[in-house]
Amino acid sequence: MTSFLEPRTVAEAVACLAHHPDARCLSGGATLVAMMNAGLADPPAIVSLQRIESLAGIAVGENGAATIGCMTRHRTTAAEARLVGSQEVVRLAAQRIATPPIRNMGTIGGSISFADPAADYPAALVAADAEIEVVGAAGTRRIAAQDFFVDWYTTALAAGEFVIGVRLPPAPRAAAVYDKLVKTEGDMGIATVAVVVAMDGGRCTDLRVAVGACGPRPVRLRDAEAALIGGPLDTQAVAELGRRLAEALDPVDDVRASSDYRRLVVPRMVGRAVAAARAKAEAAS
């Protein structure tokens, strides 16, 4: 028997999780119910977040920072025109998630809490310098996206905590590109690349490159990015960044591709995505 609880406030949801330590939060169901149907999850209680009105929707503050509530469907994020500059990388990633019915159901909170490394949001959120807002009995806290994704299907959420939203800092002059290599549209990625670039007078002023689906968590090399700041972001320099990223990956052989293949394609994907983002940034400035 499984309890089904529908708290109306965040505080009630926290109380539910405290009362049922093995409960699972339900947002859209696209992940949790699939796991239950596959026999991989059998929670004694389900805490549905859908009746907590404050958790759905996207808000943009005066300083340009955007907050995506955990219950926001992929469909909504994929169409949100107010996600601009670096934030656009999250919208672009949402557009590539699975197929339309899944985007009608699935939410950003549910997706990232499952932390499938081959999903679309992890690399995009790391490239966007996002912070994950979580709540628990001790109150709320923010976790940098890079630190939120800990390992295969493992996040930094502590017992009794859940994700309430994702905060995207503003970088309106930057341009974003999200590339996903798939066998067929709608599938999980063989590899994903999320890129943010800003240019000023032919010089790179902001560069962020995150690679997903190639190991337990998104990979981003901040020191290698920093080495390219101030330069023209030429093909050779970007190729070196791609080479170092490929070295830093820990890809597996799976049904979609081999580990070797992933290491082979990632530098090419990085080269193309950074070039496209640079062109987009220069066209906008």
């Binding site: 089904f4 339900l26 859209g28 169901g29 696209a30 119910v33 699939a34 149907n37 596959a38 389900i46 549905s48 469909r75 197929t99 339309p100 019915p101 899944i102 009608n104 159901m105």
Partner: peptide, 23 residues
């Protein structure tokens, strides 16, 4: 029963969703 095939599609408030993934 995993949300992949779409054979269980129903409309929820007018939009297609997976019947197998909706509690």
């Amino acid at each position: 029963n995993q949300g992949v095939c779409g054979a269980c599609t129903v409309l929820l408030d007018g939009r297609p969703v997976r019947g197998c993934l909706m509690l």
